[in-house]
Design a binder for these strands. Structure first.
Lengths: 201, 201
DNA sequence: GTCTATAAAGAGATAGAC
DNA sequence: GTCTATCTCTTTATAGAC
């Protein structure tokens, strides 16, 4: 249990950790144990520090969570606000959003993983869930648009289709590990292929 | 917070709750708050009982979890052992397993939801994860079979395809609620349609 | 930026009565 | 089948020194 400290991105020269490094390490532990099962002691043991050290960088354990959720949500919202999501046919925009979401999932894997496990047990968690719902609704609107355009099947309700779509995308956090055999681009290709064209030959 | 007790399936006549009813109620609370965030007090408050009452029916909080995970895993494993999963072409068996899994998800929604959130924090959780992995591998083998048979595209690795497939299926627990507009059969149709034939027209 | 020490609250679980 | 009372351990967070 007392292994070497997390190999946190170095910060040249100075001793100790800054807020960024501590967040990086903490989110990893949250994802391993689950946020609620993680004590502040578990958070700081990972870095070889005492509990009190965390309170120098954050007001509370919950503020660590908040910082992580902000990253995840900010990155995901940016995908919907990007140029590729704003022009072209609805099906092309949908595909671009799927690719963008996969890219964010991979790039911000720990933060997004944490976001997807939030259940609404506190004000911080409920705010995050509200932003997530808004994201989901923008996806559903995009699917509806593609249905009206005729490029997406209309025999499945848009909200259900959108949920199954992002169920597929979001499930990636359960097994994908960067540096494995599958690159992020290849993964995005596979997701778009399965989601839009199906598994059948 | 002190609402009416959970409307647990009645047990005609006698006072108090039996093990089955207590499990039913407890698993609901676990899913609302998350297992780790749920105290034994929260569990029994829901039924209007004291903490000690739970220990008449279960040895520990963890044994409640164990009982729930056993149900979920048993039901899922039964899908793979069913007749429809044993004969016919691989693609037909795959479709049958998908339908069966959706049916189990809906029928045992609380137990499966709990299972899908387990992270391996205890021996009970790790045993459940081991069984889940075995299930996943049987799915991957089925996909591989369908690829060799030529009915499933081979440009996506079987293990990745299987994971995306069950990512789609499992995500149902995040939003589906029985008694809503979508019936279980219709939902299974939608899942098989999206997974095998895709969303595109 | 980190430490030790400690406060205050809440956790899981048990004993024994009804 | 449930209760009250209690034990013990762990939790989040703070105070104040280095």
């Amino acid at each position: 249990m007392t292994d070497a400290p997390d190999p946190v991105p170095a910060r040249r020269g100075r001793p100790g950790y800054d807020r960024e490094q501590m967040l990086f390490s903490a989110v990893r532990v949250f994802n391993e144990l689950g946020y609620d099962a993680t004590s502040v002691a578990a958070l700081t043991e990972r870095l070889g520090l005492s509990k009190a050290a965390l309170y120098h960088h954050f007001d509370s354990k919950e503020q660590v969570l908040d910082a992580s959720l902000e990253r995840a949500l900010g990155s995901l919202e940016a995908v919907l606000d990007a140029d590729e999501a704003m022009s072209g046919s609805a099906i092309d925009r949908l595909a671009a959003v799927l690719r963008g979401a996969v890219a964010v999932l991979v790039a911000e894997l720990p933060h997004v993983t944490l976001l997807l496990r939030v259940r609404g047990n506190s004000e911080v968690e409920r705010r995050a869930l509200t932003r997530r719902r808004a994201f989901d609704q923008r996806i559903a609107a995009l699917v509806r648009h593609a249905q009206r355009e005729g490029s997406v099947r209309s025999d499945i309700e848009a909200s259900v289709a959108a949920r199954l779509l992002f169920g597929t995308v979001n499930s990636i956090v359960e097994w994908y590990r960067p540096g494995g055999p599958e690159g992020a681009d290849r993964l995005a290709d596979d997701v778009v292929a399965v989601a839009l064209d199906g598994l059948r030959t």
